[in-house]
């Protein structure tokens, strides 16, 4: 579209264009990733026989679940224009804590308390000490990874039976990860799209994206407190993903969360959430995580080299973010 076109000036767009470009909506560009996900699923069901088998589909859900949970958590901070690079370390840290010898009724609350504390430190450093989110969470990533490696230098130990059973068991013939997914989605939907907290997060993010940081504050949004809570929420979701992963790998592993933050950010970005803040939707993030999981699953089924899979993920991320245009330049 040429810059002089009146549409560009008024920001008015026909509805179909809004859906296709995600511009002018609060939910971001989620229709395109949905089409990509459907296209991959269709292509796989035609080419790989075993793709549509129930086993593989449940396997897909189990594989995707940690990423879905982490990405949803990451979304809380991306919506306010932040980023949390410490989630990968928090996941590893969680598995290391769970693999300590102790009763489950102590370890699981401890995991959430520690994760909330990490999130709170992130939030305080960002809101009260004016440190850029990338720097604050990056240094937290180092510190938590260091502590994790002191706790558990190499993978080992066993996690409580309850945790293992909650991931590998099944109820009424349906594997438990499906219930994990439903529960997480319901909670996240309520918090993000059905509560005052979620609305305030979008207001803060929209204000930051538009470069007017004081406006939500003047409308009675407690900016600092909500931002702090967003980082706490993000860390707690990461801890939840860590518990799920610990149940799947049955032991503590200091490297299991390595680069997880990047996958989570990729999933959120693919789902149409704007990294400048204020725009995004939960279903977009779930679709984004599913696209990543489908890709991994499909490339495994068709024996694509795991190394080139990384490249393909990166190219998809570039394509998806390249298609969304925004006003703000830079970070």
């Amino acid at each position: 579209m040429p810059p002089s076109s009146p549409d560009r000036l008024t920001g008015m767009k026909p509805a179909y264009l809004k859906l296709l470009t995600g511009q002018g909506t609060r939910q971001g560009l989620w229709s395109l990733p949905l089409l990509i996900a459907l296209a991959i699923a269709l292509g796989l069901s035609l080419t790989a026989q075993q793709f549509t088998s129930a086993d593989n589909l449940f396997n897909l859900i189990t594989q995707a679940m940690p990423l879905i949970i982490t990405a949803i958590g990451q979304m809380f901070v991306i919506v306010i224009g932040g980023l949390d690079l410490s989630v990968g370390s928090v996941i590893s840290f969680t598995t290391a804590i769970l693999a300590l010898d102790g009763p489950a009724y102590l370890l699981i609350p401890a995991v959430f308390l520690l994760a909330a504390a990490i999130g709170a430190i992130n939030g305080i450093v960002i809101t009260r000490l004016n440190v850029h989110p990338i720097i604050a969470t990056l240094s937290m990533q180092y510190v938590v990874l260091g502590i994790t490696r002191i706790l558990r230098p190499v993978s080992g130990g066993t996690v409580p039976d309850v945790v293992i059973a909650s991931v590998s068991g099944s109820l009424l013939g349906i594997p438990l990860p499906v219930f994990w997914g439903i529960a997480v989605l319901l909670v996240a939907w309520k918090v993000l799209h059905g509560s005052r907290f979620g609305l305030h997060l979008f207001a803060i993010g929209g204000g930051i994206a538009a470069g007017m940081e004081k406006v939500p504050h003047n409308f009675g949004v407690a900016e600092r407190r909500n931002i702090l809570l967003a980082y706490v929420t993000c860390s707690c979701f990461a801890a939840l993903a860590g518990i799920f992963l610990a149940g799947r790998i049955v032991s503590g592993d200091p490297n299991v969360g390595l680069l997880f933050e990047l996958d989570a950010i990729t999933a959120v970005a693919i789902g149409g959430t704007q990294l400048s803040g204020g725009v995004g939707a939960l279903h977009g993030t779930v679709i984004g995580a599913l696209v990543m999981a489908l890709l991994a699953n499909g490339m495994n089924l068709t024996n694509v080299s795991p190394f080139i899979q990384t490249t393909i993920k990166g190219l998809i991320l570039l394509l998806v973010v390249g298609l969304q245009s925004r006003k703000r330049m830079g970070l």
């Binding site: 950010i265 080139i308 990384t310 970070l331």
Partner: peptide
């Protein structure tokens, strides 16, 4: 294109490392 710099440069790095 006004894409987030963190995302673009990280993605480029991922693509090159994988390649």
């Amino acid at each position: 294109r006004r894409v987030s710099a963190v995302i673009v440069t990280l993605a480029v790095s991922i693509v090159l490392v994988g390649f």
